[in-house]
C-alpha cells in the first residue's frame, strides 16, 4: 500500500506543519510516512503545497508527487480544474468552504468543512491547518483522529485540540447531483 496526499493552502497557514503532523500521526499508528514541502522560496499568502506519503513498508520513493489519492485544499479559491484532475480515481478531496463545493468529478468523494468559522468560534485564527487536519482524519479513516489530536495537544495545547475535534464533527460530504 502506498498512499499519497496533497495539502494546499497559503504561506502562513501552516500547510507544511499540517503535512508533518499527519505524517507523525501515521507513524504513531504503526505506518511508515514521509512528508515534504514543495521546495522553493515561499511568500506569505502565496499558494503553498506540502505532500505526505504513507505506506505499510518503508517509503523509499523520493520522486515528486504528480498524482495523489487525497487533496486537502484549505480555501475554495485555491481549487482549480488541473488540481482536481490530479486526484486518483476512488480518491477524495476535502475543501475549506462555507458552502458545498461543486461536484466536478464523480469518481472521487467530495467533502467540505467551514474551517474559517470553526477557528473563529474557538478564537484560534491561525489554526486553519488544524481544522483541515481534523476534517481529513474524520473522512479518510487511515490515521486515527486521536493520534492527530494528541500531537496537536502536546504541541499547541488543548484549545487547538478542540479545533481538530470540532472540524472532525463538522465535515460534510457533498452529495452527487441527481
Amino acid at each position: 500500500m502506498l498512499f499519497e496526499l496533497l495539502m494546499l493552502g497559503r504561506g502562513g497557514q501552516g500547510v507544511v506543519t499540517a503535512g508533518r503532523i499527519f505524517a507523525e500521526a501515521a507513524l504513531k499508528s504503526g505506518l511508515f510516512s514521509q512528508s515534504f514541502p514543495e521546495f522553493g522560496p515561499e511568500r506569505s499568502g502565496a499558494p503553498v503545497r506540502s505532500y505526505v506519503r504513507i505506506s505499510d513498508e518503508p517509503v523509499m520513493l523520493r520522486a515528486p508527487i504528480e498524482n495523489f489519492d487525497v487533496a486537502v485544499v484549505f480555501e475554495r479559491k485555491l481549487l482549480d480544474h488541473r488540481l482536481v484532475e490530479m486526484i486518483r480515481s476512488g480518491g477524495l478531496i476535502v475543501v475549506g468552504s462555507e458552502t458545498p463545493v461543486e461536484f466536478a468529478r464523480s469518481d472521487i468523494k467530495w467533502f467540505y468543512v467551514d474551517a474559517r468559522k470553526i477557528v473563529e468560534e474557538l478564537n484560534r485564527p491561525r489554526s486553519i491547518n488544524l481544522a483541515m487536519l481534523g476534517a481529513l482524519c474524520s473522512v479518510l479513516h487511515l490515521v486515527p483522529l486521536n493520534n492527530v489530536e494528541e500531537i496537536v495537544r502536546r504541541r499547541f495545547g488543548e484549545g487547538n485540540a478542540e479545533v481538530v475535534r470540532r472540524a472532525a464533527s463538522r465535515v460534510v460530504e457533498v452529495e452527487a447531483a441527481a
Binding site: 508533518r20 505524517a23 507523525e24 514521509q34 512528508s35 515534504f36 514541502p37 521546495f39 517509503v59 523520493r62
Partner: peptide, 9 residues
C-alpha cells in the same frame, strides 16, 4: 531539499 527537508522516520 529531497533529503534535507523531507520528514521521515
Amino acid at each position: 531539499f529531497t533529503v534535507s527537508h523531507s520528514s521521515e522516520p
